[in-house]
Amino acid sequence: MDEFETIRPYADAEVPTVMARLFADREFLDILARFRFPRLAGTFGWLLKPLIAQRLRSEFAGIHSVDTLQARIEMYLDRTIERATDGITYSGLDRLQQGCAYLLMANHRDIVMDPAFVNYAVFQAKLRTPRIAIGDNLLQRPFVSDLMRLNKSFIVRRSITARREKLAAYQQLSAYINHSIRNDGESIWIAQAEGRAKDGDDRTDTAILKMLHMSRKDEPFADALSALRPTPVSISYEYDPCDQAKARELYIRDTTGSYTKAPGEDDASIALGITGYKGRVHINFGTPITQVPEDPKQLAAEIDRQILCDYRLFPVHYLAYAMWDQRDPELAIPGLSELFDKEEIARAEGEWSRRLGACPSEYRPYLIKQYATPVRNQYRLKAGLPL
Rank of each mutant, 00 (worst) to 15 (best):
L308G: 04
D202T: 07
R312Y: 02
T85S: 15
D136M: 00
G279P: 07
Y251A: 06
A247K: 01
E344R: 12
R57K: 04
A224Q: 02
I274C: 07
G279I: 04
A268M: 12
D218F: 11
A133L: 03
S234Q: 04
T129L: 02
L69D: 13
A346E: 13
Y90M: 09
Y363E: 15
A106E: 06
I177W: 02
E238N: 01
A175D: 14
L93Y: 11
R312D: 04
E194S: 11
R128F: 08
P50R: 08
P16I: 11
L47Y: 09
I73N: 14
K246P: 00
P50L: 04
K342C: 03
A53R: 00
Q244F: 09
R248M: 12
S180R: 10
L385Q: 04
G350C: 11
R163A: 08
N183K: 12
I73A: 11
P288S: 12
F44V: 07
Y251Q: 11
I368H: 01
C359E: 13
Y90E: 06
L299V: 10
Y251P: 05
T260S: 06
E186C: 13
L356Q: 15
D266K: 07
A169C: 04
P263N: 08
N377A: 10
G273F: 02
I188C: 04
D266Q: 03
L104P: 03
A224Y: 06
K297T: 10
R376C: 03
R280V: 00
L339K: 09
S258W: 06
E14H: 10
L225C: 09
A162R: 11
Y259F: 07
H317N: 14
K246E: 03
L47I: 07
H64E: 13
D12V: 08
P241H: 02
C309A: 06
R57P: 01
M148K: 07
W352Y: 15
R376L: 07
S153N: 08
C100V: 15
L127I: 09
I155K: 01
I63P: 10
V316W: 07
P220A: 14
R128N: 12
I31L: 13
G42S: 03
I333T: 07
E249C: 05
R347C: 08
E351Y: 13
A116Q: 08
A320R: 02
E362T: 12
P360A: 12
E330N: 03
V18Q: 01
R72S: 15
N178C: 15
C242L: 12
D328K: 00
R229S: 08
P50N: 04
S337C: 06
G195D: 03
A191Q: 02
I134Q: 06
G62T: 12
S215F: 10
F154V: 05
